[in-house]
Amino acid sequence: MEKNKTAALREQILRASGVNPKKCMRCGKCSGTCPAYDEMEYHPHQFVYMVETGNIEPLLHSESVYKCLSCFACVERCPRGVEPAKLIEALCAAVTRPQGANHMTPDDIPALLDEDLPQQAIVSALRKYMK
């Protein structure tokens, strides 16, 4: 039962993200290029590998899914076209959507802004939480 649920979740994430983790050749360029690397518990290459092997549960409970800036450097530079950021975004959506509580309205956002927040992160936040 548990196994089936994981498989279904994996399927959902792959479909939502359009990512095929089998294309990954484990070069680690995504993690080499990631500006938010040190903020993350799990790193871009691990996201790809863990989704591929079905080890998704830890990712859902990790804050790492929110740490991705959606800068898409990993997508741009991945030599195999795996697109880790899209995968992370799909995982994020998988966490936030069923819980419902995490949905934000655009009005909530100004209060959360601080001056150091890069603009890209704001746009990214809107993308993620509005979904």
Binding site: G28, K29, S31, G32, T33, C34
Partner: peptide, 20 residues
């Protein structure tokens, strides 16, 4: 691992890379 980024800075090359 792979080098993700090289940034020239003050006569040095800042290399950011992953150690998998």
């Amino acid at each position: 691992g792979m080098v993700g980024k090289v940034t020239p800075e003050n006569g040095k090359l800042k290399v950011q890379a992953s150690d998998l």
